[in-house]
Nucleic acid binder design. Sequence first.
DNA 1: CCACTGAATATAAAATAATATATTCATAGT
DNA 2: ACTATGAATATATTATTTTATATTCAGTGG
Lengths: 202, 202
Amino acid sequence: MKRFLCEKTDDEVRKAILDAAEKRFKQYGFKKTAMSELAEDVGMSTSNLYRYFSSKLDIAEAFALRCFAEKEIGLQLLLEKPLDSAVDSLVVYAKGLLQYNFDQLYVYPAINDMIMALCEASSEMVDKKREGELSILKVILKKGQEEKCWEIDDLDETGLAIMASWVMFSTPTFMRHQTLEQLEKRLSNLLNLIITGLKVRE
Amino acid sequence: MKRFLCEKTDDEVRKAILDAAEKRFKQYGFKKTAMSELAEDVGMSTSNLYRYFSSKLDIAEAFALRCFAEKEIGLQLLLEKPLDSAVDSLVVYAKGLLQYNFDQLYVYPAINDMIMALCEASSEMVDKKREGELSILKVILKKGQEEKCWEIDDLDETGLAIMASWVMFSTPTFMRHQTLEQLEKRLSNLLNLIITGLKVRE
DNA sequence: CCACTGAATATAAAATAATATATTCATAGT
DNA sequence: ACTATGAATATATTATTTTATATTCAGTGG
C-alpha cells in the first residue's frame, strides 16, 4: 500500500478530510461528529486520520480557518466596489459582517455548538478571528484617514474599540433574541454615533 | 397559630425570605439553592414559602430587582457630584457600571449561574435591567443636550445604541477573558470614539 | 376562617452503569 | 522506509436508575 486512494497528495487528502468535516461540523457540531464518521466519509481507517491531522481539535481549527477565509473573501468582495467612501465602506463592512453571522446561525443548525467548542478549547482561534476582522477594519479606517474625512490617533486602538462595540452583533446569544431587522437598525444607529460622535459640530 | 414568628407583616416575612435567598443565590446560584433550605433559614415549612412567593423563579426575580435597585443607587451616587460635565458623567457611569459588573463576578462565586438562569427563564428581567440602565443613561444624554455640548436626534435610539456597544463590558463570558485594566482601557477608547466620532472636526 | 404544616406528586438533578469515541501503537502490506 | 490498519486504552457520552426538589393540597390547630 503506497498511497491513499489513487496516489493523492497529502494536501488533497487533508482537503478531502476537511470537506467531510465541514459538512458534519456544520450540521451536527463538534461533539456530535465522530472521527470514525469522517474516516468512513473519506474511505480510510480512523487511525489513519491522525497521519493528516494531529487531533479532532486540529481538524476543527482548520475548518475554522477555512470559514474565516471564506467570510473574509466575501466581505472583501463587498468592499471592492470603488464608489464607496470610507463611511460607506464601514457601513457595508459592519452590515456585511452582521448579515454573515446571522445567516450562519440560521443556515447551519450546529454552528453555535461549533463556535462554543472552539472558543472553549482554542483561544488561539478566537484571536485569529478578531485579528482577521480587525485587519479589514483597519484598512477602512486608514482609507478614511487618507480621504481626510476621519481623524484617528491610533488605528489599532480605535479598531479594537469598534470591534468591542460590535460584540452584540456577532454573539449568537444576543442575536438569537432579535430579528435581523432589529439588529440592523441598532447597528445602523451605533455606526452613526461612531462616525459622527455625540459632540456638537460647528 | 395566627402569624409567622412574632406577628410579622407579610412584607417583613417576604424580606426575611429574600435576605436568605440573597445569601444563597450569591454563593450557590439558582439551581443549587433549594426551597427547603430557604424555608429552614427563615424557620418555616417549605410549603409555607408559597404563601409569600408564587415560585422559586419569583424569588429569583425579586432578588434580581433588589440587585438592580442597589446597583442603580450606587451609580446615582457616583453621578451626584455636581462638578461633572455630561462627558464626565458618561465616563463615570460607564466605568462605574463596568466596575460593578466586574466586582460582582469576582466577589460572588455563583453570580454567573444566577444571571444565566434568570436570562433563560425570564426575559422580563433582562428587559428591566436594560430599561433601568437606559433610563440613567438618558438622563446623562439629556444633560449633554441641555449643556449644548451634544447633539442627539433621538434619545431612546441613541441610548440603546450606546447600551448595545457596551455588551462586551457587561457579559461574564467576555469579561472573564480580560483584566479590569484591559477592559477599562478598551471602554475608555470606545467612549472617546462615541463622544468625538471618527469624522474630522474643523 | 386563617396561618400553617406534612404528606403526595410530578419533575429535575445526581449518581451510576453502559456505551461510544479519541487517540496510541505495534504490526502488516508494499 | 512508507502508508495504512486493527486492536488496545483511557476518556468522554449516553442511557438508566436513584435520589432530591419544586410545587400542590388536604388537613390541623388556633
